[in-house]
Amino acid sequence: MGSAQPRRIEERVIRELWLALVLLGLALGQAALMPHLLGLAPNLLLLLTICQALIAGPANAARWAFYAGLALDLSADTALGLHALALLAAVLVAGLILARWSRGNWLLPLVGVVLGSLAYHTLLALLTGLLVAPISPRVYALVVVLPATILVLVPALPLFLVMRWVERRRRGEVPFDVY
């Protein structure tokens, strides 16, 4: 009954606010708490939004990307919308390219994270180059993109499996894997 009825606008707003607040908290946590390895912190929000795009589709994950991006901009004191655009690019690239892949395929999060991370960093570098200062693509790729992608690649599979499990429990699906 309740779920079949269209959600009221207030419920949706509250739900969106909660999501935005949670992502803001995560962004603050990422900025303040995340340990730095190789001079970089694992981009938890990038990983979350990509996994969400792979599980729930890019449209659903776009909201996450937008809120998370704004939260990152606020916590990192970067131009508002910069990270939001980069995360949206990651969500779109990973979500659309891998739209036909089964969610039971264990390679999905790994490939998705690589694609998403590349899109995210490419757009971020482009925008930073335009708004702040030009960046050497080769150096940026070696110093930032490669280590950052490896860092998010490590926890990608466990996080994806957890998120997929949560999503399936929410929907009441029977899990199966493709090896």
Binding site: G57, P58, A59, N60, A62, R63, A65, F66, G69, L70, A79, L80, G81, L82, A84, L85, L88, V91, L92, G95, L96, A99, L127, L131
Partner: peptide
């Protein structure tokens, strides 16, 4: 993935707008 592409586009435009306004 194509169902709510309009939402994605809207969010992208909104982010761009915010970026421009902030700049």
């Amino acid at each position: 993935p194509y169902r709510s592409l309009t939402l994605v586009v809207a969010l992208v435009l909104l982010a761009l707008l915010l970026l421009v306004l902030d700049q």
